[in-house]
Every structure is written in structure tokens, then in C-alpha cells.
Design a protein around this nucleic acid. Structure first.
Lengths: 306, 306
DNA sequence: ACTTATTACGCCGGTCGTAACTATG
DNA sequence: CATAGTTACGACCGGCGTAATAAGT
């Protein structure tokens, strides 16, 4: 008769939390799953572990002496496991592994690139591979395992099942125009515009702009990437809506940046598979580095905005 | 990053046994499974655990320092688990559970009945239910979980997949005749016989008898159970082939028992589901009691045969 | 060629969640 | 009727084995 550590953990949770429902909360499971673990543990050991007689006014189940004994041992197992984990982490920052990150160009420049450099400095055995991806294939690749982290410019409120993630920053949109196109955004409304790639957050923002002023814009150009759009602006050909991160720290000649808070922002976040064993340490390091980098970027852009 | 105890066990086995193949043998797994456990453990921890450079003439893989560290902790986990098991067994012979045993009448009388009594004496919380079953439905019920142990009179050489079992005893066949039917088996060949139930080992033995003497027997009667067959013999109506265990210790009047070693024996054994957690302790107790009982029966019949 | 280990792939069983049910205050 | 727990059932995932592959002696 082999004791299954996972079932023991369930028993311990019940002992600690004082009930099946409470244990389920702790373990991030449903009461059903916990109940089944306990039932099987009793069947496998051939010992009654739970006291189901709720005679003395208790609301939740109690443990029999044998149950308490096993729960105690379960605690020991958990301790040993935690020690192993700690010792391993202590022995070596030698975290190994390749982490594949899907990102769009602006994120590569401001987030992934610097984060990868930071990780590489601290953990030389972690290799970061960056791949440019369209949003939909990126999620598919994430689930399939070909990609470990996805930087998205449309971070969802409710995360997809099986995935976890972190919000990183809101990247506010700006209107950029040639400098001599009249005052403010209004002065550019009748001029040519650069549209973003279909489905992109920038394209949606441009739509919002048109709706806000109730005009139909002349979208004479379409650029997939922001540097190209800026180049058109710089050449005096068009105005464009671009996110703040796409605007270089030192403005190119012939480009004027206008605040347009009503345009909103793209919500940048990072997604990863969620599971008992994921994200793994290498991915976790990269993720943390990206998060840290996002915080710095937020601070920096805050200064620039004022 | 949560360490999975099962993977740790695999790592420990590799460390102890000195190689993936050796570990697989110890764990009753294929090398493939072990290799996959190790690969995943490395991915999940982000640490290289195996030294795959076989540069210095080693045949099998070695462990990195981190691997040895983890293997050591894995050993401690195993120790704690074993302690828990021991303590639990010590705290209580309070093994609980209903064990359903499928058997045929002779086995019920000589094996299951006494074994159940013995178990009940030592472990009052174990309830043994005995059910008579035809062989084929018994196996189906065993797999379905409706039955925990099956006593079979045709114990297979190669056990069915998913099942385990133990050989119990060989129950040699006898020829029983009325006392005044001439000398030996030959004297009965031209007389009427009782045939066993179709498919039963006794029927097969009777066929063997006919083939041995190259005669066609007059099978005028058919009895499903041996007491009925013996009653016919006792009444002077027929001869019969019955297993030794079906012959009462004190012979009924009008029954003569003849040795007929060439008839062979039925191989009696017990089958159960095999798995990480099966048979469970209650079933194991019953199984052990049955095995012990079989040994006593063998000894007893040995005396009686002489 | 033989041994050791890893990878590809399909199957099976285990585990989980949803939902219905029981029991108890 | 509200709360605690169990049971039935279906879906999904993880682990295992078979077989093919790699690499080294």
C-alpha cells in the first residue's frame, strides 16, 4: 500500500483548514476534488480517516486519530519538499533553459530586450529567444508550448482558461503631426492619416479619434510598424496615432507630439501557461525581469508626459 | 515551482541504481517513463540534474551536484512516507472495508470461509462478502470493481493485463465409483458417468480420462456441483471425476475413491486488480489469509492422499 | 553489433469540474 | 432554506508503453 503524497496534501489541508470546503479553497480546487482524494485515500489505506458523525454540533468534518496521524506525516512530507526546494535554489542560481518570448516590436525594444539582458547578466544559463508574432498565433503557440511568454497589447480582463498573466503597463496613445499643421488635433482632421495594421490597438484608437470628432478621416497610408508611420509624419505626408512607447525619446525632426488622453491606451501585459509546474524558474525569471522593466518604463514615460 | 514527489522518486532511483535502465527496473517502469520524468523534472526546476557527458568511459548517466542534492532530499521524502505508512499500520489494525470475493463452492468451503473467519477474528472492521460467480462474469466484475478477489480453478500462466494474482494449490482429480464396480478405473469405463458443468475443469478432466483410455463414456448425468455428483455415485448410479477437495474427509457410504494422477489437477489461484494502490490493505489481508489457508489445505490433502 | 538513453506518438487511467443529491441545523 | 459534503458523469491532461532514433564503445 503506497501512500500518495498528493492525497496526503489534501488530508493535511483538511486538517489545517478545518473542513473540505476550506481545504478546497486553500488548494485551489473544488470541494469535489478534495472529497474524492479523501475517499480514495481511505479506500487505499483501508483506514477511516474522517469523522463524519456531526453529532456534537460541529459543522465540518473532523479527523479520526488515524487521520490526524497521517495529516501530521503529511506535514512532514511538505516540510521536506520545501527544504529540498530551498536547498536547490540556494545551491545554484544555475537556472537553465530556453525561454521563448513572443512580442511586438515596441515591447521588444522597451521591455523584452532590456529584461533579457538583465536576466542574462544574472543567470547566464537562461537563454531568451524573442520572436515576433501576430496576436492570435502567439496564443496558439503559447498553448502548444512553442512559446513560453506572450507580450500582448490587449491584455484581457478575464484571462483565458489555462493561462495566467500579469498586467504590465498602459501605453497611452499620442497624435503625431508635422509641426505646421495648425493648432492641436483639430488642425489635422482634414489632412491625410496613417492607419495602423488591421486589428491593432493603434487602429482601434484611430477609430476612436474619428468617432470622438465625428469625422471621416482620410486614411491614405497604412503602416504595420510605428517607425514607418513616424517617417511619413516626419516627411510631412500625414498625421498618425501612435502609442507613447513608439515615440523616440528625442523626437525626429518634423514631428510634433500632441497629447490626446481621450484616445485611451493599449493595455500591455504578459501571458504564460498556468499549471502546477508552470511557469518554470527560467520563465519566471524572465517574467520578473519584464515586470521590473515595465515599472521603470512607466516611471520614465510619466516624466516625459509632463 | 512545486517539486513533484513522483519525479523525485525517479531521480532517487536513478541515483541509487546507477542509470536510467536500472532505475526503470527498480520502479517497474520502462526506461522511457523514467527518462521522461527526469526530463520534466529538469524543465520544471530549471536545473540540470543529469550529467550526460559520458566522456570518462562511464556507461550510464551520472548526476550533477544539484541532482545529487535533490536525490538526497528525495530519499528523505521516501523515508517520511515509509514512516507514515509504518505508524499508520502500527496505530491500528483498524483496517476497514468490504472485500468482495468471487469463488466456486469448493473454494468457498475450504479456502474463503476459513480465511474470512481468520480475518474477521483479527480485523473485525474488515467485512468479507462471498459471491458465487461463473468464471467469465467474475473477471468482468473484478475489473469493474464490483469484486475484489476472484478464486479461479483455471489459474492462468500469463496473467491478464491489469490483474495480478497468486497461485494457491493444485487440486488433483479423483475418480469416484461405487465400491463394487470392478477393479480400478477400468472396471467403470463401460458404466454410466456424471459429467461436470460445461467448461468446468472437471469436465475437461473427464474428457482427458476418455481420451486416455480411448473410449466413449456414457455420460448419463450432468451435475453442476460435486455433492450432487457424489450423491449419484453413492446411490450406485454412476462414476464421476471430482477434485480432491470435493471429496469429504469421511467418505459417504457407497463411495470408493481411486487415484488417477493422469487426470491432472485444477490449478486454483486468486486474482486481483493490480495497481499502485491495489490491492488495498483489507483485500491484502483477505488475500494473505486465503494464501495461508491454501498452504494448510495442501498439507492436509497431502496426508489424506497417502 | 550492443548497450544506454532520448524522442515521437497513441492509448489509457486518473483527476478535475459541473451539477445533482443528501444530510443536518 | 442554507451550509457541508458526497456522488455521478463527462472532459481533459498526464503518464506510460511501443517503437523508432541517437550516440557511444
Amino acid at each position: 500500500m503506497h501512500l500518495d503524497p498528493r492525497r496526503l496534501a489534501a488530508l493535511r489541508a483538511v486538517a489545517d483548514a478545518g473542513g473540505v470546503l476550506a481545504a478546497a479553497k486553500v488548494l485551489h480546487l473544488t470541494p469535489s476534488a478534495v472529497s474524492q482524494h479523501l475517499a480514495r485515500l481511505e479506500a487505499e489505506t483501508g483506514v477511516t480517516l474522517l469523522d463524519r458523525s456531526r453529532a456534537d454540533g460541529r459543522r465540518a468534518v473532523g479527523l479520526t486519530p488515524a487521520g490526524r496521524l497521517l495529516a501530521e506525516h503529511a506535514g512532514r512530507v511538505a516540510v521536506v519538499l520545501a527544504e529540498a526546494e530551498r536547498d536547490l535554489a540556494e545551491l545554484t542560481g544555475q537556472v537553465t533553459g530556453r525561454v521563448v518570448v513572443a512580442a511586438f516590436p515596441t515591447a521588444m525594444e522597451h521591455l523584452v530586450g532590456p529584461a533579457a539582458a538583465a536576466v542574462h547578466a544574472g543567470s547566464p544559463h537562461v537563454r531568451v529567444s524573442v520572436r515576433e508574432f501576430d496576436p492570435e498565433p502567439a496564443l496558439a503557440a503559447l498553448r502548444a508550448g512553442g512559446v513560453d511568454l506572450v507580450i500582448t497589447e490587449t491584455y484581457p480582463d478575464a484571462r483565458p482558461p489555462g493561462l495566467g498573466g500579469t498586467w504590465l503597463l498602459d501605453d497611452g496613445f499620442r497624435v503625431v503631426t508635422p509641426p505646421d499643421w495648425g493648432s492641436g488635433v483639430e488642425g489635422a482632421l482634414t489632412r491625410p492619416w496613417v492607419s495602423g495594421s488591421p486589428g491593432s490597438a493603434a487602429r482601434v484608437a484611430l477609430d476612436r479619434l474619428a468617432a470622438r470628432y465625428d469625422v471621416v478621416l482620410r486614411r491614405e497610408h497604412e503602416c504595420l510598424e510605428f517607425p514607418a508611420a513616424l517617417a511619413l509624419v516626419s516627411a510631412g505626408l500625414a498625421a498618425a496615432v501612435v502609442p507613447g512607447l513608439a515615440v523616440p525619446a528625442e523626437l525626429p525632426a518634423g514631428v510634433r507630439v500632441l497629447e490626446a488622453s481621450a484616445l485611451g491606451a493599449r493595455r500591455i501585459g504578459v501571458l504564460h501557461r498556468a499549471g502546477r509546474h508552470e511557469p518554470n524558474p527560467a520563465a519566471r525569471q524572465v517574467l520578473d525581469a519584464i515586470t521590473a522593466r515595465a515599472a521603470r518604463v512607466t516611471a520614465g514615460s510619466g516624466q516625459r508626459a509632463r
